[in-house]
Nucleic acid binder design. Structure first.
Lengths: 148, 148
DNA sequence: ATAAAACTTAAAGTTAACTTTAAGTCAAGA
DNA sequence: TCTTGACTTAAAGTTAACTTTAAGTTTTAT
């Protein structure tokens, strides 16, 4: 199957201008053109774009993604480099997840805080609780928030 | 304890210009000034800043964080609104974590792919494997990447 | 008293990743 | 053939969240 830029964009859920921008930035060297100069996307290009999407979600910048693509185009000599890059991004994503978990823990505390405030009619109640009145799961979090 | 903008910035691990920028944008209405016009941060301001930091990590924009701060300054009438906002951000962060987990699953597949390519000396080996030759955990992932 | 360091503001500059615009070309259907 | 919609490029505009600069003021230390 062959696709125009608009069709491929729809498949991916992005704007056509995004794909043109990626192309301009050199991320799509594999995309061919019709005799009239119109981009012709193949099914295998969809796979490339899904990889670009994945790497983007790991926080990689477009220029670094471009480097990865050129490595891949360079064939089997770059397998080690590509593996190293994937492992690096794995580590980066795991760290991001840990940080999000920390953020979620803080939100859990804040939710308990406002639920307690709601029942009491005032934030003074959770705010002025002593540490041992808090659910234990929140004690360390409140300490950190308060810089203790 | 009282702090200058530079001291508070150091505590938080941000640039002093960032705190001045937040102040300019109206996120720090609680920060007071010395007679000479210099910002004087209190310990309680540190707590505000940690909340700003947390909300920022959930993906909230500064203007929305500002609204939250003004709600909080408006006292107990806004407890319900603040609780609703925290719950909304909780949901947003959970969704972000799910998406990161999806990304991590794809990276796990790619890692296996390049490890297999490395052993074989060529990406042709993992690329041309039939679905039942793949570890089952990766079958659905490869299908999705290939648009099948 | 004075020098250095850190503060002040306003305004301009930066960055990444797009998006929009303008002017024009290609392709598909009637 | 002609119209219409989608394509093309180059260039300018957008956005958020800062950062930097410049010119000047306050505070701290000697």
């Amino acid at each position: 199957m062959l696709y125009t830029v608009g069709e491929m964009a729809k498949h991916l859920g992005v704007a056509p201008s995004t794909l043109r921008y990626y192309d301009k930035e050199g991320l799509l060297p594999f995309v061919e053109r019709s005799s009239g100069g119109i981009r012709v996307f193949k099914d295998s290009d969809y796979e490339w774009l899904r990889i670009i999407e994945c790497l983007k979600k790991t926080g990689m910048k477009l220029t670094d993604i471009k480097d990865f693509i050129y490595m891949a185009l360079n064939g089997d000599d770059t397998i080690d480099d590509r593996l190293a890059l994937i492992i690096k991004q794995q580590t980066a994503v795991r760290k991001q997840m840990e940080e999000l978990q920390e953020t979620l823990n803080t939100l859990n505390f804040k939710r308990w805080y406002y639920e307690t405030a709601k029942k009491a009619g005032t934030t003074a109640v959770p705010r002025n609780m002593t540490l041992d009145e808090l659910p234990e799961e929140f004690r360390a979090i409140r300490k950190r928030l308060r810089g203790e």
